[in-house]
Deep mutational scan, measured.
Amino acid sequence: EQLARLKREFNENRYLTERRRQQLSSELGLNEAQIKIWFQNERA
């Protein structure tokens, strides 16, 4: 579920704002660094 949600977010926007990253962190139970790194890896 977390992965599917991250992929949906990535398809909508390849870059997250700090606020959006905080929201996802709270909703998915991941820390902000994990989300940031995931997005960086997807863009690579």
Rank of each mutant, 00 (worst) to 15 (best):
F10G: 01
F10P: 01
Q2I: 15
T17C: 11
L28V: 06
L6T: 02
Y15R: 08
T17A: 05
R19K: 14
I35D: 01
A33V: 13
I35A: 00
N41P: 01
A44P: 03
A44G: 06
I35T: 01
A33E: 15
L3M: 09
E42Q: 11
E1S: 08
N11S: 13
A33R: 08
E42D: 02
K36N: 14
R14S: 13
T17G: 09
A44S: 09
Q2G: 05
G29F: 03
S26T: 14
Y15Q: 08
R43I: 14
Q40V: 06
K36G: 12
N11F: 10
T17R: 03
N41I: 09
R5N: 05
I35H: 00
T17N: 12
Q2D: 07
Q22K: 14
K7T: 08
F10S: 02
R43C: 12
R20D: 08
E32I: 09
L16S: 01
R5Y: 05
L6D: 02
E32R: 03
Q2V: 14
E12D: 09
R19A: 15
E18W: 03
Y15M: 08
K36A: 15
F10Y: 08
S26G: 08
Q34G: 01
A4I: 09
N31M: 07
I37T: 09
L28T: 12
Q34D: 14
R8N: 08
N13K: 05
E12S: 04
L24K: 01
R14D: 09
N13H: 11
R19T: 14
Y15C: 14
Y15L: 10
E12K: 14
E1G: 10
S26H: 13
L28K: 00
Q40C: 09
E12Y: 05
E9M: 05
F39C: 04
E1T: 06
A44I: 12
R20V: 10
E18G: 09
S26Q: 14
G29E: 05
R20G: 06
L16V: 05
Q40E: 15
E9H: 05
R21I: 15
N31H: 10
R21M: 15
E27Y: 03
I37N: 12
E18H: 12
L3N: 08
R5S: 06
N13R: 06
F39Y: 06
E42N: 05
R21L: 15
N41G: 03
N11Q: 14
E42I: 05
N13I: 04
N13E: 04
Q23L: 12
Q23Y: 10
L6H: 00
G29Y: 01
Q40L: 06
E9P: 01
L3R: 04
R43W: 14
L28C: 05
R21Q: 14
E27M: 08
E27W: 04
T17F: 00
R14H: 11
E32W: 06
A4M: 09
R8E: 13
E12F: 05
Q23T: 09
W38H: 04
L30F: 02
S26L: 15
E18P: 14
E18L: 07
N11L: 14
L28F: 02
Q23V: 11
G29D: 07
A44Q: 13
A4F: 00
R20P: 04
L30E: 01
Q40W: 06
E1V: 06
E18T: 14
A33L: 13
F39L: 03
L16E: 09
N31Q: 10
Q2H: 11
T17Y: 02
N31E: 13
R21K: 12
F39G: 00
E18A: 14
A4T: 05
R19E: 15
E9D: 02
L24I: 06
S26Y: 13
N41M: 12
F39E: 05
I37S: 13
T17E: 06
G29R: 02
E27V: 06
R19D: 15
Y15I: 12
R21G: 13
R14Q: 14
E27S: 04
R19G: 14
S25M: 10
I37H: 11
A4K: 07
E32T: 07
S25K: 04
A33M: 14
R8L: 10
L3S: 04
E42A: 12
F10R: 01
N11W: 09
W38P: 02
R21H: 05
N31W: 07
W38A: 03
E18F: 02
E27N: 02
F39P: 03
K7I: 12
R43D: 07
A33H: 12
E18R: 15
Q23N: 09
S25R: 03
Q23I: 13
N31V: 06
R14V: 03
R14L: 00
R20H: 08
L16Q: 04
S26M: 15
Y15N: 11
N41Y: 08
S25F: 06
A4W: 00
N11A: 14
K7A: 09
Q23M: 11
Q23R: 10
F39I: 01
K7Q: 11
A44N: 12
E9Y: 06
T17M: 04
L30T: 00
K36L: 15
E27D: 09
L24H: 01
L16T: 02
K36H: 14
Q23A: 11
N11Y: 10
N41H: 10
Q34L: 14
K36Y: 11
A33F: 11
G29L: 04
L30Y: 03
F10L: 02
L16A: 02
E42H: 08
Q2F: 07
E1A: 07
Q40G: 05
L16H: 03
K7Y: 07
Y15A: 07
E12I: 09
Q34P: 00
Q22L: 11
E27C: 08
Q34M: 14
N31T: 15
E18K: 15
E1P: 04
S25C: 10
S25Y: 08
R20T: 09
I37C: 14
L30R: 00
E9F: 06
G29T: 02
E9K: 03
A33Q: 13
L3V: 09
S25Q: 06
E42T: 05
R43T: 07
I37W: 13
Q23K: 11
W38Y: 07
L16F: 03
L28A: 01
Q2Y: 06
E18Q: 12
E42S: 04
N41S: 07
N11P: 02
I35P: 00
R8V: 11
F39M: 07
I37P: 00
T17K: 04
